[in-house]
Amino acid sequence: MIDFLKRFSRNRGALIGALILITVVLLAVFAPLIYPDSPWKMVQRPFLPPFSTEGLPLGTDTLGRDVAAGLVYGARVSLIVGLVSTLVALLIGVPLGAFAGFYGGLIDDGAMRFTEFFQTIPNFALAIVLVAILEPTLPTITLAIAIVSWPPVARLVRAEVLSLRKREFVEAARLAGLSNTRILFGHVLPNAMSPIIVMASLMVATAILLESSLSFLGLGDPNIMSWGYMIGAARTVIRSAWWLSFIPGVAILLTVLALNLIGEGLNDALNPRLARKGR
């Protein structure tokens, strides 16, 4: 574990990413303490530019709402959607891929055709359709994102399991009379954890992007302030008040960038042999 932290911190990008992410998480967690009022509340006259009024560091939007408050509350939505949808995607993808790879044959064929069915539909289109059919609320948006993002997980886990199940330690476990489930969950899957963790960190980033895109199109939860909604609402005034789209855009950029940096750092730290070469 200490070894892992040492290797992770050797990657400067990953450290910066971790710092940004921690800041975003802290802001999101303490949002109600920093801004006790609702982010939807009008506090001043509209279109105040940043740094022009005391108490409103990022100015106000088209309806006179505090942009800073919106940003902080929007972080909550982004993070929750990103995390929960990734967890749900893992819950679908990992077992499916694991069973497909481990048992092979018909189970593998069935599971992979099912996965391909989802892979052939463009992610974003499917997410829009799902949210449009269901009502756009936080849980349904999360679910829609999870449903479009599990297929790569299933394929990755299947590939890992396929190569691991031929290893001699798995055969040794089989000779010891272990049951298939015990071999799969006790011996095979733990050895496939590293790539899954790396992929998950990158999936959180794409989930945040997806959520923002949905809210930008007006398919977000109408009762929740989110970054995508802020950009979408400000796009009509982009010529007169460009910062209203710019500021939440930067927030998305930084968070996604942070997650990608962390993902790469994790990759280096978890696969030290690949990472050390030629730097």
Partner: peptide, 15 residues
């Protein structure tokens, strides 16, 4: 019946 395997690096679960 038990087996001793060829590859000492692959025959033990690294975790």
């Amino acid at each position: 019946v038990q087996m001793i395997f060829q590859d000492p690096y692959a025959s033990l679960n690294p975790r």
